[in-house]
Design a protein around this nucleic acid. Structure first.
Lengths: 173, 173
DNA sequence: ATACTTGCAAAGCCTTTGCAGATCT
DNA sequence: AGATCTGCAAAGGCTTTGCAAGTAT
C-alpha cells in the first residue's frame, strides 16, 4: 500500500499524461483526495478540500474528469450521494462501516483478497479486475450505547438515512 | 446457499412475524425478489415484478418496508439508482460486474470469504457483521468487441452512465 | 486567436412524503 | 370503526448541463 505522498505522485503522473491543465483548484482537490484513505463525497471535497474556494460545479466537473482519467473511482455506499477514492492500479479498497455511527475505517487488503481477483480472472475470463469490499456492522462503542445496542432488530433504515446527521471532519459518511 | 424456494420461505416467515399485511402486491414483489439472485432496482421491480399492476409509490414503499424489516438490503453500485437483494442472515453477496456491458453475475460466497467476517469481528470488535463484495472487470465477450476492448484506457465513466442504455430482461444494471 | 476553465442558473432524475380514497380486520 | 394500504401529485435533494465570461497557451 502506498503512502499519501506516493499516491499524490502517482496521480500527478497520470494527470501529466493527459491534456488536463493542472489548475490550482484541481491540484488542491487531487491533493485532498490523495490524503484521504476513505471514499469522499463532493460535499466534503467542497468543505474540507477546497473550502469554498471554487463552485460546486467546478469541483463536480473535476471529479468527473478525474474519474474519466481513471485517477479516481466512484465507490458505492447505500446512499444517494457518491463517494470517490483514488484508483491506484491493483489497489482494491476495503472499508469497515459502522451502521450506527457511520464511522468508516480503511482496512488493509490481504494477500488472500488480492488472490480473489486472480481467481475470478482465471475462472471467468474477466480482465482488468478490481473489487470493492465493504464490511458493515456495529462498532464496539455503539454496542455499548443503549439506544441502538439494546434493540439489534430495530429498523436500520431510518438511522441510516437520518437527515439531522451531519458529516463531521471524521471519516463518516 | 439457499435455492429460490427456500429464500421465499424464509422471507415469508420474517413477514409473518411482523404486523405487515401480506397483500397481493407485496407477495408479488417478494416473490420476484426471491427469484432474483442479483440486486434489483425499483424500475425493474415495476416492469418485471409487478408489471405495472401497482404504482411506483407502492412498490417503493414496499421496498422500504422490506428493508426496515431487514428482509432485503440495499446494495450499492456506482449509480444513482438503488438496488435491493434478499438479506438472508449470514449470506453476504458477491457479484461480478462487466464494466462494458453491465452484465451482473452472482458469485458463490466461498468459505474463506465468510471467514473474513469472523476475522473482522474478532480483530475489531464489530458485531452483526456482513459484507458486500463486488468485482468489476471486462467480460470475455466485451474483450473481443473492438469498440471497447481495443481502448482499455478509454474513459469508463460515459459508458457507465449512458442514458440510452436500456435495462433489459437480463441481469444488467 | 484558440482552447480550456469556471460559475451561475436551470434542468433532470430518482427518491421521499402529504393527503385523500380504498381495503382489510 | 380503526388501522392499513394505495395512488396521485408535489416536494426534495443530488447530479448534470447550457451558456457566457474568464484564463492560459
Amino acid at each position: 500500500m502506498k503512502n499519501n505522498q506516493q499516491r499524490m505522485v502517482w496521480a500527478l503522473e497520470v494527470c501529466e499524461r493527459s491534456r488536463m491543465r493542472p489548475t490550482p483548484i484541481r491540484q488542491k482537490i487531487l491533493e485532498f483526495l490523495a490524503d484521504r484513505r476513505v471514499p469522499t463525497s463532493l460535499e466534503v471535497v467542497m468543505r474540507e478540500g477546497v473550502q469554498g474556494k471554487c463552485s460546486e460545479t467546478t469541483a463536480y466537473r473535476t471529479l468527473m474528469l478525474l474519474k474519466e482519467l481513471q485517477i479516481i473511482r466512484q465507490v458505492s455506499f447505500p446512499k444517494k450521494t457518491s463517494y470517490f477514492v483514488l484508483n491506484i492500479p491493483g489497489e482494491s479498497s476495503h472499508f469497515l462501516v459502522c451502521q450506527s455511527c457511520r464511522e468508516v475505517t480503511e482496512l488493509p487488503v490481504s494477500e488472500s483478497a488480492r488472490e480473489l481477483d486472480r481467481e475470478i480472472s482465471a475462472s471467468r475470463g474477466y480482465s482488468q479486475i478490481y473489487h470493492d469490499l465493504e464490511f458493515f456492522g456495529i462498532c464496539p462503542a455503539c454496542q455499548k450505547q443503549p439506544a441502538r445496542a439494546r434493540c439489534p432488530n430495530a429498523p436500520l433504515s431510518n438511522p441510516l438515512v437520518s437527515k439531522t446527521q451531519t458529516v463531521t471532519n471524521g471519516v463518516k459518511y
